[in-house]
Amino acid sequence: MARIPYADTAHPDHVEAAAAIRASRKKVGHLHRMLLHAPPIATGWITMFDAVRWNSTLSGRLREMVICRIAAINGASYEWAAHAPIALAEGMSQAQLDALPAWDGSTLFDATERAVLAYCDAMTRQVHVPDDVARAVRELFPARQLVELTVTIAGYNCVSRVLEALEINGADVLPPDA
């Protein structure tokens, strides 16, 4: 059970933000229903994450790989459940997805993926990225994609932290979406 009730999409203070979420995501799910308690944050969230997911030049495969890795590190099962099917659709194999929680002991990831996963791990676990880890991704990606990768990792760490702090796990039955 989530720590606070989900917001009512029909509440006058939430209608505009709920419409923006629906326009982007087709429905107002658990996370977005919770964010509606703070409408400016909900609309800003959608704008930022639409940019990360749909307007980035970073491959969808790498994007979803780091999102799932973050979910594994942070124990964010709702995030994992939401993004694992997308990762598969973007080209990750089921074997890679299964190996992701312990990727560093796996031979299923190529040199680029290993550099990206090391960067993701450093950002998620330590915040301060060691120079050698940063250098490895900087040598692989142009500046735009390095920023996109960095913001994707930072952003989805934010997602998992919101999900886990508010205990949003997808098990709660949402009230009807107005």
Rank of each mutant, 00 (worst) to 15 (best):
A111L: 03
S106E: 03
L97E: 03
A81V: 09
G91T: 15
A99M: 08
A89S: 11
T112A: 01
A84E: 14
E113N: 04
W103D: 07
A111Y: 04
P101M: 02
E90H: 12
F109R: 11
A99E: 08
G105W: 01
A81W: 12
A89H: 10
D104H: 14
P101S: 00
G91C: 11
A82T: 15
A84T: 13
P85K: 13
D104M: 10
A81P: 07
A81Y: 11
T107A: 09
P85H: 06
I86E: 12
H83G: 04
D104T: 12
E90D: 13
L88P: 02
E113C: 03
L97M: 05
D110A: 03
P85L: 06
A87S: 11
S106P: 00
Q94F: 00
G105I: 07
Q94P: 03
L88N: 02
I86M: 13
G91W: 05
W103Q: 10
P101I: 01
A87V: 10
S106I: 03
L100Q: 08
T112W: 00
S93I: 13
P85M: 08
L108M: 10
F109W: 06
P101D: 00
L88R: 08
E113T: 06
D98H: 13
G91I: 11
Q94V: 08
D110M: 07
D110E: 05
S106L: 03
A102T: 14
G105Y: 02
A99K: 11
Q94H: 05
P85W: 02
S106N: 05
P85A: 06
S93Y: 07
D104P: 03
A111W: 04
M92E: 05
F109P: 00
E113D: 08
